[in-house]
Amino acid sequence: MTGQEPPRKPSGDDDQPPPDTGMGMTAVAYLLSGMLVWGAIGWLVDHWVGTSGIFAGIGAVLGVGGGVYLIVRRLGA
């Protein structure tokens, strides 16, 4: 119909995404990056010391623990 205005947005809506958007991907990224970074550091220690993977495993476990800590601390889950 001619002469009609489009509907107006509510006064408080400024097209911001909800605050929890992407929290799941953030949690997965914390877990994977912690495991990869600390596992790689452990692998380097293994290479330097001459062991066969023990420090890489310890590093990966510590990385997952650090990732869980960050998830709880930053995302409040």
Rank of each mutant, 00 (worst) to 15 (best):
V64G: 01
R73T: 10
K9D: 11
G24K: 14
V68F: 07
G63M: 01
V72Y: 04
G59T: 02
V72G: 03
T51N: 00
L31A: 13
G66Y: 09
M35Q: 05
A56L: 03
L36F: 09
D46C: 01
L36M: 07
S33Q: 08
A40M: 02
Q16T: 11
D13M: 12
G22F: 08
G66I: 06
V68N: 04
G39I: 00
G50K: 00
A77H: 08
G67N: 01
L36Q: 04
H47R: 11
K9I: 11
P6R: 13
M1H: 14
V45H: 05
S52V: 15
L70W: 03
P10K: 15
V61Y: 06
G63C: 02
T26V: 08
A27L: 13
D46E: 00
L70R: 05
I41C: 01
I54M: 13
D46T: 00
G3F: 04
V68P: 03
R8G: 12
P10N: 15
G42A: 00
G63S: 00
T2Q: 11
S33A: 07
Y30V: 08
H47N: 09
G12W: 10
P10T: 15
G39V: 04
W48H: 14
G34R: 00
R73Q: 12
P10G: 15
Y30S: 07
V72Q: 05
P17C: 04
G3Q: 07
A40Y: 07
V64D: 01
P17A: 10
P10F: 14
L31P: 11
P6L: 13
L31I: 15
